[in-house]
Design a protein around this nucleic acid. Structure first.
Length: 422
DNA sequence: TCTGGGGTCCTAGGACCC
DNA sequence: TCTGGGGTCCTAGGACCC
C-alpha cells in the first residue's frame, strides 16, 4: 500500500511561513532568472497560467496586487527536509520523489487506524511541525496513489485526503479523470491516446496490456497494469546514484564578450564539480554547450555543444574547468549574442583509479583530494573562495541571473533569521 | 528588454563483430 | 551473378517527470 504526500503550492507555501501577512493573499514564485511562473497560490490559479513569462503578466500582477518572489532554493530545500522528516517519522519507509512530494510504504498500517485516519494524521502533523499544507492520496499502486492525490487536491470536500483502496472507488474516479491526468501520460502520449478513442483514465485501464506494449511502449504497459491495481513500481528508499550532473543557467543579460562567457562557464564548472564531490563520484566526460536566445527574432537560434573525455576520471575542479574552457574555445563564435550556457558531467566511477598505459604518468595534480576537501570545507563553513576563472565578484557580471524579488533565507543563513521584537 | 533547470528511461538506427 | 543472420554496443533524440 502506498501513500503519496505532496505539498500544495510548495514554493508559495514556504514563502508565506514567515510572512503571516500574506496568508490567503495571491502569491507567485518565478523560475531562475525571474523568467516564468513556476508556483502559484490557490487564489492566483484562475488568472495566471503555470509557466507564463513574467514580463507578459506584469499588468495582471499590478491589477490583482500579486506578491512576487524569485526562487529561493536554500529556503525550499530546508523546508523540504523538514517535511520529509515529519512523514518519515510516521511511516515505516519513504521515498523522496521530488522537493515537494514523497511516497510512503504504509503496508499493514490499517491494522491501527483506517487509511483515511492515517492520511489525516500525516496531513495534520506536517502542518503542525513543518507549517506546510499537504494533500494525501492512498492506494495499492504508486500510479493509483498519484491519482488519489490528484483528486485530494482537486476537490475541496475531500479534506485533502483520498483513500482509493477500493476497486469500485478506483473505477469511479478513473471514469471522470482525463487520461492526461495519469502519471506518465504527457502531452504527446495523451494526444495519441485520444486519437485512438482513449479519453479517460478508465479507458486506458481497459487497454489490453499486449496492445499497450505493441502500439506504445513497455512504459505504457506498466502504467496500464498499475491502474488495474498490479503494483509494478516499487518504493525506492535509497536514491540511486546519479548518472549525470548538469549545471546550467540563462544569463541575466545577453553576452557577446568571450571573457564573460568564459567566466560563466568556469562558475558552472566549479558548481558542477562541487556536486560531483558531494556525490562521491569521479567523472570521465565533460559536455559543454552555449546558446543564443531561443525566442529572439534578431538572429537565428544558435546552439553549440561538444563533449570531451578527461584523461583520468576526476573530481578536481581544475580538470573540469580546463576541459570546459578548451571546449568553449572551439565552440566560440564572435558576434553572437549568447544567453545561456551549461555543463554536464557524465560517465561516473566511484574512484579515480584506472589502469595506466605506457604513455601516461598519472593524474595531473598532486594532493588533489586534499586541496578539494579543504576548499569544500572552507565554503561549507561560511567562507567563500573560488577559482579566479569565474571573475571577481565585485565586477559587473551580466551573466549572473536576475533575482529581483528574493526573500531572506529565513532558516539557513544566520543574518537572515527573523527577529522578534518584544 | 524580459521566456527555468535538472533529471531518468526508452527506442531506433547505425556500426561493428562473427 | 548470386550477397545471411544474429548479436552487442553506442548514440541521438524523444518523451516523461518535478
Amino acid at each position: 500500500m502506498f501513500a503519496l504526500v505532496d505539498v500544495n503550492s510548495m514554493y508559495c507555501a514556504c514563502e508565506s511561513v514567515f510572512r503571516p501577512d500574506l496568508k490567503g493573499k495571491p502569491i507567485i514564485c518565478l523560475s531562475n532568472n525571474d523568467g516564468c511562473v513556476i508556483a502559484r497560490s490557490a487564489s492566483v490559479k484562475p488568472y495566471i497560467k503555470m509557466g507564463a513569462p513574467y514580463f507578459e503578466i506584469q499588468h495582471i500582477i499590478k491589477e490583482k496586487q500579486v506578491t512576487v518572489f524569485s526562487s529561493n532554493y536554500p529556503l525550499y530545500a530546508d523546508f523540504s527536509n523538514r517535511f520529509m522528516a515529519v512523514v518519515a517519522n510516521l511511516v515505516p519507509q519513504i521515498e523522496v520523489y521530488s522537493i515537494d512530494e514523497c511516497f510512503a510504504d504504509i503496508t499493514g498500517m490499517d491494522a491501527l487506524s483506517s487509511w483515511s485516519e492515517l492520511g489525516h494524521q500525516l496531513k495534520n502533523d506536517v502542518l503542525q511541525c513543518a507549517h506546510l499544507p499537504v494533500g494525501v492520496g492512498i492506494s495499492s499502486t504508486k500510479t493509483l496513489a498519484k491519482l488519489a492525490n490528484h483528486a485530494a487536491k482537486t476537490w475541496k470536500k475531500t479534506g485533502g485526503v483520498v483513500d482509493l483502496s477500493s476497486p469500485s472507488r478506483q473505477k469511479k474516479l478513473m471514469a471522470i479523470l482525463p487520461v492526461s491526468d495519469v502519471w506518465g501520460i504527457g502531452r504527446k502520449l495523451a494526444k495519441r491516446l485520444n486519437q485512438s478513442g482513449i479519453e479517460t483514465a478508465l479507458d486506458l485501464s481497459r487497454l489490453p496490456t499486449s496492445q499497450a506494449r505493441k502500439l506504445y511502449s513497455v512504459v505504457l504497459e506498466r502504467t496500464v497494469r498499475e491502474l488495474n491495481g498490479e503494483s509494478c513500481l516499487q518504493l525506492e528508499e535509497i536514491a540511486s546514484a546519479k548518472q549525470q550532473i548538469i549545471c546550467s543557467r540563462s544569463y541575466g543579460h545577453k553576452v557577446m564578450d568571450y571573457e564573460l562567457v568564459r567566466q560563466s562557464v568556469c562558475a558552472f564548472a566549479e558548481r558542477a564539480a562541487v556536486k560531483l564531490r558531494e556525490e562521491k563520484q569521479y567523472c570521465r566526460m565533460v559536455t559543454l554547450w552555449i546558446e543564443s536566445s531561443y525566442f529572439t527574432t534578431q538572429q537565428p537560434y544558435h546552439h553549440g555543444h561538444e563533449t570531451q573525455a578527461l584523461v583520468y576520471p576526476s573530481q578536481d575542479t581544475r580538470d573540469i574547468i580546463q576541459a570546459a574552457v578548451s571546449i568553449l574555445e572551439r565552440l566560440w563564435q564572435p558576434n553572437m549574442k549568447y544567453s545561456k550556457s551549461g555543463i554536464m558531467l557524465s560517465e561516473f566511477s566511484p574512484s579515480g583509479q584506472i589502469q595506466l598505459n605506457l604513455f601516461e604518468s598519472g593524474p595531473r595534480f598532486r594532493h588533489s583530494g586534499e586541496l578539494m576537501q579543504t576548499i569544500d570545507h572552507i565554503n561549507r563553513n561560511k567562507g567563500s573562495i573560488w577559482f579566479a576563472g569565474q571573475g571577481i565578484q565585485s565586477q559587473a557580471m551580466p551573466w549572473k541571473m536576475k533575482q529581483q524579488f528574493l526573500s531572506p533565507r529565513w532558516t539557513t543563513k544566520f543574518t537572515d533569521i527573523p527577529l522578534v521584537r518584544c
